[in-house]
């Protein structure tokens, strides 16, 4: 089994790229691979807890929590997140907060890296 690191940059709402990144992570972890997800840019808006899942909109919290339970390491870019007015105390539990070097360190130990670009 390999290690996959996904850099996820798109916003939660407005496109399906974010949804795809999480679905891909789920498929990989279900196959037994180690998966890391780095959230940066607009994707960091998805780490806020207590999201209301309206069916017209993509949602992050439910799927992020499920991935965390499966052992996926998920980390948000702290600078990108606080720039959007989200504090760590408001974030989803067990989700990590760190700087960009977290992503590079995970890349270092990865067999494959997928950069899902954002806006």
């Amino acid at each position: 089994m390999g290690t996959l690191t996904i850099g996820c940059f798109p916003g939660l709402v407005g496109n399906m790229s974010y949804d795809f990144a999480l679905k891909l992570a789920e498929a990989a972890v279900n196959k037994g691979h180690k998966v890391n997800i780095w959230l940066s840019g607009n994707a960091t808006g998805s780490v806020k807890a207590h999201q209301k899942h309206l069916k017209d909109y993509s949602t992050g919290e439910k799927y992020l929590k499920a991935l965390l339970e499966k052992g996926v390491e998920i980390c948000t870019c702290e600078a990108c997140t606080v720039a959007r007015g989200i504090q760590k105390t408001e974030g989803i539990e067990k989700l990590q907060w760190n700087a960009m070097h977290w992503y590079l360190a995970k890349i270092h130990g990865s067999d494959r890296v997928l950069q899902i670009g954002g806006e």
Binding site: F9, S40, G41, A99, H101, Y103, L104, G117, G118, E119
Partner: peptide
């Protein structure tokens, strides 16, 4: 967009990655 800027800052982050390796 933001990502073209983030490419640069993510590259600069190589300077501090060793603390995690």
């Amino acid at each position: 967009g933001e990502t073209s800027r983030l490419a640069i800052t993510h590259a600069i982050a190589y300077q501090t990655v060793e603390i995690l390796l």
